[in-house]
């Protein structure tokens, strides 16, 4: 349910004029909820940025998510993270 909740909170932030991106652990949920921008990651539930105490991996996921904020493409944008 976390992936739906994230998409719904994301919509509220976007509606306040804040440009938003989320991480998704369940692509099929995110495709149904359709938030503005989402990065689907190949990690288990509970591990949205990859692994604990792995700053390099966490950083790569964050930078890939931030990149979606800068794309000038039709929304929603739902992309896969390639480790």
């Amino acid at each position: 349910m976390c992936n739906q909740s994230v998409g719904l909170i994301q919509a509220a932030f976007e509606n306040e004029g804040i440009v938003t991106v989320s991480v998704s652990l369940y692509r099929f949920v995110t495709e149904k909820v359709r938030p503005p921008r989402a990065l689907c990651v190949p990690f288990p539930l509970g591990y949205p940025l990859g692994a604990p105490h792995d700053p390099a991996l966490q950083r790569r996921v964050i930078l890939a998510a931030l990149e979606l904020l800068t794309l000038d493409e039709p929304l929603p944008i739902i992309r896969d993270f390639r480790p």
């Binding site: 440009v19 938003t20 998704s24 949205p48």
Partner: peptide, 14 residues
């Protein structure tokens, strides 16, 4: 968040 002047937001599930 808007009141704080947040420009962009990153959201994460678990």
């Amino acid at each position: 968040a808007r009141g704080d002047g947040v420009d962009v937001a990153l959201l994460t599930p678990v």
